[in-house]
């Protein structure tokens, strides 16, 4: 069996530089959870289907199970742990937009990016962005309301 050697890499996560030694085959999700202890990103399917591991890479939501850690060298990674006092977090709390909370970090990262990139998003845009994530507890209506409340707040301020 060919064994991939480990290599040292420096990742920029939540504004901090982290030097780690990892396998080249390690996904970003694995590195975040197992090397950096950032367990907010969840391994829901490891197949890019559920979105529970979504993080932002240079501001774009990416499923961290679908990208290798070495591919993210030189990029800026934001995980749920790096999100502080974002309006979407409060909106999720107030709208009861989660129950068990397992899909929540991924949903929040995706929804946060949506509100940042597309402050004028209509229903169809919201659907296109958020259909990549699965929530098994809520009816999705609560999540929709949370996202829309943040968008509405943003539009009011403009």
């Amino acid at each position: 069996m060919i064994r991939a050697p480990k290599c040292e890499m420096t990742l920029m996560v939540n504004g901090e530089k982290h030097s780690i030694v990892a396998r080249q085959a390690d996904t970003l999700l694995f590195v975040l959870r197992n090397y950096l202890g950032l367990t907010g990103s969840k391994p829901g399917c490891l197949n890019g289907d559920c979105g529970a591991c979504t993080v932002l890479i240079d501001g774009t939501p990416i499923k961290s199970c679908m990208i290798l850690a070495i591919e993210t060298i030189g990029k800026s990674i934001t995980t749920i742990e790096g999100l502080h006092d974002a309006p979407i977090q409060r909106a999720f709390v107030e709208q009861f937009a989660f129950q068990c909370g397992y899909c929540t970090p991924g949903f929040i990262m995706n929804a946060h990016a949506l509100t940042e990139h597309r402050p004028d998003a209509d229903d169809e845009t919201i659907r296109k962005w958020l259909e990549s994530n699965i929530c098994r507890c809520t009816s999705y209506r609560e999540i929709e309301q949370a996202v829309k409340s943040v968008l509405a707040e943003g539009q009011k301020q403009e």
Partner: peptide, 23 residues
């Protein structure tokens, strides 16, 4: 009353820990 769940803020900040998070 619609009291906000006690673990709400842990869950929206990624700090809520589940079994497989205790590595």
């Amino acid at each position: 009353k619609s009291v906000i769940r006690k673990e709400a803020w842990d869950k929206v900040t990624g700090r809520a820990k589940y079994t497989h998070d205790y590595l």
